[in-house]
Simulated assay, not measured.
Amino acid sequence: MTGVRRLSAADFDDHVPGLADLFVDAVASGASLGFPAPFEHDAASRWWREQESAVVAGERVVFVSCGAGRVDGTVSLSFERMPNARHRGGVGKLMVHRDARGRGLGRTLLATAEQAAAAAGVTLLLLDTESGSAAEHLYRSAGWTCYGEVPGYAADATGTALRRCSFYYKPL
């Protein structure tokens, strides 16, 4: 692991293949990220390419950690565009490659997003995750507060069962 860095708009495109590989790995290992398995590399690449305009516009910031010739982890920070919500941001697509888990990378990525949000003047962050997941444990242990849970919110990684989703916030 070489550390976490923010992708510039200029080097975002070069990282799309590695981000897509990571996305496919995360879904294949059971992460609830909006897509059921099997999740094809082309679909993952397409999803990341659809984010490029937001990255260029500064509405989404993507952080990566690279090592062992691949993207080991990522997290995205999105900024609200509405004038009455510019104090608020969202954390999403926090992923760690299955071979890099258990070493604190998820916590480092989350802290990086939180620090970047605070530096940008954001005072409140929001996120959602599958209830009972390993990610939920991470968020709780990192000081996030659950403000609600919705049953049957999203399909699981296999696409066969509906799962509860927990919603979190963290003041910065």
Rank of each mutant, 00 (worst) to 15 (best):
K93P: 10
K93L: 12
L94V: 15
L94I: 13
L94K: 09
M95N: 12
V96E: 14
R98E: 13
D99P: 01
D99N: 06
A100E: 06
A100Y: 09
R101K: 09
G102F: 03
G102I: 01
G102T: 00
R103E: 14
G104S: 04
L105W: 11
G106P: 14
G106L: 11
G106K: 11
R107E: 15
R107V: 05
L109E: 08
L109C: 06
L110T: 04
A111K: 09
T112I: 02
T112G: 14
A113C: 07
E114F: 02
Q115H: 08
Q115W: 01
A116H: 14
A116I: 08
A116C: 13
A116G: 12
A117S: 01
A117G: 03
A120M: 00
G121M: 02
G121T: 04
G121N: 05
V122H: 08
T123Y: 07
T123W: 05
L124Q: 08
L124K: 08
L125H: 00
L126P: 00
L126S: 01
L127M: 13
D128N: 10
T129E: 15
S131G: 14
G132V: 03
G132Q: 04
S133W: 00
S133T: 02
S133H: 11
S133L: 03
A134F: 06
A134T: 04
H137N: 13
H137W: 12
L138W: 00
L138E: 03
R140P: 10
R140K: 05
S141R: 09
S141L: 09
G143W: 02
G143C: 03
T145D: 11
T145K: 13
C146Q: 10
C146W: 04
